[in-house]
């Protein structure tokens, strides 16, 4: 076995590592596997409890159980980042296979976390195109697609700006859904094309929290039922917010279409 790593530093690193992964939107069992892998390469074993907002982790030496450390760390609210998931996951294999020293792991971890995201303007443009083609999948004609493109462009921009100023995320979803559906309702009002009601119906779909929904079911099926249900409840709250924004539009315009 390699010479012993200070348990305090290992514990801090593993907590940073696992809270970052959780806020990047990974399902729970991958976090557990990755943490076990890294701790194992230093000759420690780990038991961890994961909740929606906190991680409790006990690290103990495989041979001498008087060397142990237990700590709790809050999971920061973060935006999803699959690039981080992919790279941190392979970092855990690197630790396992090459027995990298802790300083090297820490250095690589900081580099991965610091990697820049895709430009927000690209995201804005691509999400708008995506929602427009989503409208086509639901049977919308070109007029409806154009309308949804504009509605998503404005709605997603509103969401990005409100997120930037750290507005409450439920308020963000209500307002973004209201703005997007209000713009799409112009088509219903002026009878643009054959399918303006499809445009109104799909204009808010870019807000649907798809990744949390998928993760919640994976967690539930894999036995992390509490995390899974917390995620499902959070996703349901957001869906209710989307429906509230949309129903405000329907109420204001006196429409009864959907």
């Amino acid at each position: 076995m390699k010479e012993q790593v200070p348990i305090r530093e290992l514990s801090n690193f593993l907590l940073d590592f696992s809270t970052t992964l959780m806020s990047a939107g990974v399902h729970t069992s991958r976090v557990v596997r990755n943490v076990h892998r890294i701790a194992g390469s230093f000759g420690y074993s780990v038991e961890m409890t994961i909740f929606q907002k906190h991680i409790t982790m006990s690290i103990l030496h495989a041979e001498d159980d008087s060397i142990r450390r237990t700590s709790v760390r809050a999971i920061p609210a973060g935006t999803f980042n699959f690039n981080t998931i992919s790279q941190l996951s392979s970092l855990s294999w690197a630790a396992n296979d090459e027995h990298l020293p802790l300083e090297e792991l820490r250095r690589r971890y900081e580099a991965i976390v610091a990697e820049p995201r895709i430009s927000r303007w690209w995201v804005l443009l691509l999400v708008s195109c995506a929602n427009a083609s989503f409208c086509r999948l639901f049977g919308g004609d070109p007029a409806a697609m154009g309308l949804v493109f504009v509605a998503t462009l404005v709605g997603f921009f509103v969401r990005q700006e409100m997120m930037r100023f750290h507005v409450n995320h439920m308020a963000v979803f209500v307002v973004a859904s209201f703005v997007a559906s209000m713009i799409a309702s112009v088509g219903v009002w002026h009878h643009w094309g054959e399918t303006p009601q499809v445009a109104l119906g799909t204009s808010v779909l870019f807000l649907i929290p798809g990744v949390p929904l998928i993760n919640s079911i994976i967690d539930t099926l894999e036995g992390h039922v509490l995390v899974g249900f917390s995620r499902a409840v959070n996703a349901c709250i957001l869906i209710i917010c989307i429906a509230l924004g949309l129903s405000a539009t329907l109420l204001i315009l006196g429409l009864d279409l959907l």
């Binding site: 999803f80 980042n81 699959f82 690039n83 895709i118 690209w122």
Partner: peptide, 23 residues
């Protein structure tokens, strides 16, 4: 056509969660 539009939709919804570019 359905496949093509689904591909555009997936690309747009994917970039929200910042995947690796090759993915």
């Amino acid at each position: 056509a359905d496949g093509a539009f689904a591909a555009v939709a997936a690309t747009g919804f994917a970039v929200i969660s910042n995947p690796p570019k090759k993915a």
